[in-house]
Design a binder for these strands. Structure first.
Lengths: 241, 241
DNA sequence: CGCGCTACTGAACAGCCATTCAATAAAACT
DNA sequence: AGTTTTATTGAATGGCTGTTCAGTAGCGCG
């Protein structure tokens, strides 16, 4: 325990292909540094856990000096809070984009919401581990709790909307609020399992489980494997075939 | 932050009504002290979180002196590990007892397994919060991971057994392994919500959500509200009504 | 009553870690 | 080029915390 977790050269997957003027540049823009430090924090949270993550770990991980975090984030507490904020933003941007891009029928919107949670972008072992590390502290940190709760509320609101819509379309008998709660709980539980199981379970396994459950809950909208049924546009009790 | 969380007088809900010889007794049996310290640890984990829990908090909470934890548990690490073990044991004893006491038909066994998770005994806000505090560290602590994984495996094995049985009895089309994973994930997600939401969600709400989901997944075994149907003994594809 | 025995205490200690800050160096600007 | 501004460094600091251990006190036993 104590190896620096080299992520000094972050794979900035963005389209930042501009020939950087000098590779030995020490000064970076404020935003870049902050993001670099946040990523190093996530890394350390995932590998070492919350309790064992020190500022030295973070600065070493970013290949920078000791005082750097307090310079950019004022305090460790604040670094952790902004890390949570960062992950929360990333999460929301992801599902909103996927939701917007999905066809407008209920089955596809639901699919988009569910699969977004298990997207490759946000559902890496490190991200999930860091997320739980911070979330576990939420009970004793009102600021964390507020962030997490807001993230939850927005997503679940949208999910409820479509559970209700599905019910209207196909005449299911369930209570939409309860089904939403159940689905959302399942999603978080799948995350937890992904974190705990190391390499035994993969993201794609979780995806399969989630989609099959959609098929079970909304049998008129999905087939048994969880594939959206879009043939019938589905009106009130519309006749089929 | 720093008030001692008085639980010196633990409510030992057991049938230990034996008139304790002298109320000012300082020396206690080894087991009693250990349990008292573990309960103080759970309390502190729930209120302060993992990172902020110090040995001073634990000994203050138990109204004992500073060195007491190292005397009984050797190290803080070991205290935390034994706390996890304690909660794990309590959890398993609970569901095994409920399972054994349930009627032998599939629906009731399933109900027993599901409701056990949300039993008043083990599903208190403090217990759940402490559980997640420790579980979040599992990724970076092999010893924790092992304990949590074992706990999971036993419970899920039993759950799978009955999902399979239900499928055989009623001819459902789902994959039993996947359904088990989904149900179990939902259970853990409900725990998480219980922890995060403070007083907004109650144990009984979670119970309702879980049972309604059982009704959705096993429609031949439960009614829509999740009540076990026991009238029909249920054979293979038996004709109905 | 004395003698150990064991649970327990709390002061002392050593190590770790977040934070500070004076010094430095790179960019930006004039 | 000179000056200001800004980012960065890394050694110093002080507080906190886990652990130790020499001492204390309740308890049973002979």
């Amino acid at each position: 325990m104590g190896n620096p977790l080299d992520i000094g050269k972050i794979q900035n997957g963005n389209e930042e292909t501009e020939a950087s003027p000098s590779p030995s540049r020490r000064r970076e823009s404020r935003e870049k540094r902050r993001e670099q430090l946040i990523k190093a924090t996530i890394e350390s949270l995932a590998v070492r856990g919350y309790a064992a993550t020190t500022l030295a770990d973070v600065s070493d991980g970013a290949k920078l000096s000791r005082g750097i975090v307090n310079f950019h984030f004022d305090s460790k507490d604040n670094l952790l809070l902004e890390t949570l904020q960062f992950m929360s933003d990333e999460y929301q941007e992801n599902w909103k984009a996927r939701y917007a891009a999905a066809p407008s029928d209920t089955a596809h919107k639901l699919t988009a919401l569910i699969t977004a949670d298990l997207d490759r972008k946000i559902c890496t072992p490190h991200t999930v581990a860091a997320w739980f590390a911070l979330m576990a502290e939420a009970k004793s940190r009102p600021a964390y709790q507020k962030l997490v709760w807001e993230r939850d509320t927005k997503y679940r609101g949208r999910l409820t909307e479509y559970c209700r819509k599905a019910k209207d379309e196909a005449g299911y008998t369930f209570d939409p609020e309860n089904v939403t709660a159940a689905i959302y709980a399942m999603q978080e539980g799948l995350w937890l399992r992904l974190m705990l199981s190391g390499r035994k379970y993969k993201r794609t396994d979780a995806l399969k489980i989630a989609m099959e459950m959609l098929g079970t809950i909304f049998p008129k909208h999905f087939d048994a494997d969880g594939r959206p049924l879009t043939k019938t546009p589905m009106r009130k009790p519309g006749r089929k075939t």
